[in-house]
Design a protein around this nucleic acid. Sequence first.
DNA 1: ATACTGTATATTGTATACAATCAAGAGAAA
DNA 2: TTTCTCTTGATTGTATACAATATACAGTAT
Lengths: 215, 215
Amino acid sequence: MDQYRSLKDHVYDHIAQAIDSGRLSGGDKLSEQQICEVLNVSRTPVREALIQLASDGYLENLPRKGFHVKAMNEESAREIVEIIGPLDGRAALLACPRMNEDDRAQLQFLHESMQLAIAKGMLKKYDDLQHEFHDCYVQRCGNEKLIGYVRQLNRYFMKREYAHVDHDKQITLLQQANDEHAEIVRLFLAGDATGLQRYVRDVHWSIDNAPFLVW
Amino acid sequence: MDQYRSLKDHVYDHIAQAIDSGRLSGGDKLSEQQICEVLNVSRTPVREALIQLASDGYLENLPRKGFHVKAMNEESAREIVEIIGPLDGRAALLACPRMNEDDRAQLQFLHESMQLAIAKGMLKKYDDLQHEFHDCYVQRCGNEKLIGYVRQLNRYFMKREYAHVDHDKQITLLQQANDEHAEIVRLFLAGDATGLQRYVRDVHWSIDNAPFLVW
DNA sequence: ATACTGTATATTGTATACAATCAAGAGAAA
DNA sequence: TTTCTCTTGATTGTATACAATATACAGTAT
């Protein structure tokens, strides 16, 4: 019944979306005043939103120098890859016994859609589908905190650049990734929760062999 | 060089410490005005600190009803246990090749100190040492984001209650836990990073058999 | 031209003021 | 007594005002 959303929350959503959509990119400085003018609010809710965004990993706050969009670099990419495997694997383990028939059908559909996207060379489309694929089981893991962690870590993969990488090489990598998705689907259908956890954690998100990490 | 700390940061530390030390406990409401009076600052930095504390998992914010200390309950305890194993295990894996002789000696010392604490029935002391033990390798994992996650999750274990649980039973559980610590030390000394990860994740933080979870 | 210095402007951090909502209690009706 | 409504005070959410610091730039010296 309480549909109330504060101005702070509106500002938060506005900035978060601007970052997720790529309209703001790493290193960009956020002008408090400019946000005030665009959204027609005072600095108080704007600053409160910025502080929360910084705490949530969207921004970094240099004292007396303002807020900047957190930049993706070699190191933070490594940190994320080192963490996401265990978490995504655990999410799969927990989700496995909680999936219903529709969920499994959705997984299969997304896998085949990704195959189609690869065949057509639609890289961006593939990425979107991949996120849906992972979200599909993460959302079913029954652990809100885990969902939040995985979501936060995955944000970084939504802003990948393709331009500087050879197209054919990309296709090969995506095909390999989608072959792994096939195995993940198989394990979900078989209901093999522990095998699933191990595969997602140690193979799909392998630290050593991380085809996803092409920046 | 830039030692500047804003009032917001001071307020943050003050409240965080009050919660960590147990002076504030789950469900307690925080009065903005009272904090202002105690710390002699205006509401602006206080509110900014509260928002950040909420974003960091210390507090929850009911719209128009203020900030409350997040209460530990059955569900959030389960959520934490489901997450901490994979993360602590990964931290151990990453830390293993980065440990030096002093670190390993420190681990052994802490393990033996815990054994002493058990023998003397010093439960609180044991808990403190246990945190030092885990911190000892987590701090060496070389992944700031992971360190932050594990630290946040571990906070919840610092506020355990012992009163309502049989003392002998407690001792038995702690002895079992410390036997596991012995194995962890052994694996660190052997430099078996992958075995370490598996043991910490699947045995020490086992979901099914979680002796730590006595609230 | 380059480096330095001082001043003007812009931005951040904090305090205060105002508006909207909530909580508690007094008094009236059942 | 219980329940309802109304009012009053307290609390939260937002706007504005002020203070401290940082940035940009003009002018000067080297």
